[in-house]
């Protein structure tokens, strides 16, 4: 609030940077999870149809799950008036 303009810009840039980093990590962990759960056959080098389907469903479920968790998390965070 009381921060000089220059520091506000720096804080905003830091937040943006952390969000980008976090979303890339989420992307990586999503890929690892869906690959691990859906791909187990290594007799061919391309995905088979049912593996593709599994991966897409896994990713969509994971994203919906993340959104739901995010909403609940935000509710709990806002209830905890002074979190520290």
């Amino acid at each position: 609030d009381g921060l000089p303009e220059q520091d506000q810009a720096r804080m905003a840039s830091m937040i943006e940077h952390l969000q980008l980093r976090d979303s890339l990590r989420m992307y990586n962990s999503l890929v690892e999870r869906c690959f691990t759960d859906c791909v187990d056959n290594f007799t061919r080098k391309t995905l088979q149809k049912q593996e593709e389907t599994c991966v897409m469903r896994c990713a969509e479920k994971f994203l919906k799950h993340s959104m739901r968790v995010g909403m609940r998390f935000a509710e709990l965070n806002s209830q905890a008036a002074t979190p520290e």
């Binding site: 869906c34 791909v39 080098k45 391309t46 995905l47 593996e51 991966v55």
Partner: peptide, 12 residues
Amino acid sequence: CVSKYWQVNSMI
């Protein structure tokens, strides 16, 4: 495995 992982990475 590397090839398939790469594909999954692109798909997602």
